[in-house]
Structures are given as C-alpha cells and as structure tokens.
Amino acid sequence: MRDTSKRYQPVTGRAILYGVLMIVAAYYLLPLILMILTSVRSMEDIRMGQLIAWPESFSLEAWRQAWSEVQIGARSETGLKPYFINSIKIVIPAVAISTILGALNGYVLSFFKFRGSDFFFAALLLGCFVPFQAILLPQSQLLGWLNLGGTIPGLVLTHVAYGVSFTTLFFRNYYVNLPHELVKAAKLDGAGFWTIFFRIILPISTPILVVTVIWQFTQIWNDFLFGVVFSDPSSQPVTVGLNNMVNSTTGETRYNVDMAGAIIAALPTIIVYVVAGKYFVRGLTAGSVKG
C-alpha cells in the first residue's frame, strides 16, 4: 500500500531509483542471456564475429552436441546425457531418504522429547556447518570398505548423511511452532506415534515439505565436491561432466557447445526456482536466519 502521507519525493529520484535497479538487473541477467544466445549460434558465426554478439545464425546443433555427441574424457558414451542421468539417479533417492528422515526427526524432536533430545538436536547442527573437507578422507575410506566407492549408492549415502542435518533443522523449526495442544489431545485420545504423524502432522506439513525438497534438490544437483571425489566415470554427476567437458583441451573451444552444456546442467534447478521461487527463498532464509 502506498502511504499517501509520505514525504514528497521528486520524480527524478524515482527515475534514478528505477534506473539503478534496472542496471543491476541487467548485470545479473546478462550472463544468462549470453549463455542462451551463444548456445544457438553456429561455430562459424562465432569464429567470424565474436563471443559477445547478437546471433547471426540459429540452430540447436550445439544443444544436440552437448547433450549426446561431445566426447568427454575417454569414456565411450558421449555427451552430457549419461552424467545428467547419473544426477537424476543420485538426486531422487537422496532427496527422498533425507527428507523422510528429516520429517521423522523433526517430529520426534518437537513432540516426543526425551532426556538428551535437545542436546542431540544441537549436536546435529554441526552437520550444517562442517566443511566437507574435514570428512572427505574417512568417507572415502568407508565407501571403499562398503564396496560403494565410485558408485551411485555411495553418493546417495553421502548426500543423505550430510543432508539430514539440514532437513531435520527445517522440520524441527517448523513443528516446534505448531500448537502442541494438537498432539497432546490426540495422545490423550490414545492415538499412537504413527497415527498422530500420518493423520495430524503430515497433512499440515506441505509448506515445509516443499521447502525441504527444493533445498535438498538444489544442493545435491549442484554438488561438485562429493561428485568429483566419490565417483568414477560411470557415476559422475552432471556438474563433474560439465567441468570435464569445458576443460578438455583437445581441439578448438566450442563456446556454443559449452554454453549449451552449462544451460543443460543448470536447467533443472532453474526450473525449480522459476516454478517455486517463493519456497526456494524461504528455504535459503530458513537455513540461515534460524540456523
């Protein structure tokens, strides 16, 4: 609502304000626009002109190349496609398991407190902040012992182990603010642990469920460190594939293919952001302000 009693503001002031905001918006948008424009140009076009230019040609050839043809490293399957599929195979179970664990933990830590449960919650939060470098060496040992080194299940296990602190934090902070009478009354009526969870708590958990799924999806899809340390060529995620593709030094640099590849790698999280931006922001701020 515009406050009419507000002090008189010169029109030029507003114009400058909007001007600054637009220029800043351009700064954030230009790299993305450049990515898109470059990805639809032909190499011929780029060679004749320069990288930062309006397309003289239009083709989706670079996209096809990046998706299924470009040779990345020495592997027999070409293109980003196998990496993209690996990422999907990692993300789906890792997000599902860590979210379910987080919901159950949050439920217990809010409504079924026992001696030491608050202490445990505080102790678990270290997992949100530990620099992963401090756990990489033992984790690679453990995955080796479990015969999971370089495999997709190994990466799923890793992402669950280091994601559960965040998911628990999200659900616990959400549940702790719910009216406790709700659960107390159900307990008096003789409802059990699972009945209360499935009948009362889960149906009102949709907002935090969305926030958590988006947060975990973005984190795991964008992960590079675990992907590069704990995978072998058959299980590498798309971030590692993209990095290898861009940095393979053989032949001429094909900017259009690199840019198409970068968009392919970024597309899932961008779509999530565009579709559910509100929840995305809520997750970011919940992870920080309440952390």
């Binding site: 800043v24 918006a25 954030y28 948008l29 790299p31 993305l32 450049l34 990515m35 320069q50 990288l51 930062i52 973005t218 899809w221 964008n222 992960d223 590079f224 971030t239 993209l242 990095n243 861009v246 900017y255 690199d258 840019m259 590849g261 970068a262 790698a265 970024a266 999280t269 961008i270 999530v272 952001y273 565009v274 931006g277 995305f280 922001v281 970011l284």
Partner: peptide, 27 residues
Amino acid sequence: TVYLYPMALSFIVTGTVWKWLLNPTVG
C-alpha cells in the same frame, strides 16, 4: 526473482560462464 536466480545455479555453471566473459581474447 532476477537478483536471486544465480543462487539456484551450480558454482560450476557460474564459473563456466564467467570464465569466458572474463577471458580477454574472447570476452
């Protein structure tokens, strides 16, 4: 929405784009 979208990207994507933008011979 515009100011915040880079946060949804992987640092690898950001690095790839800025690498070419900042490269003096092409960017």
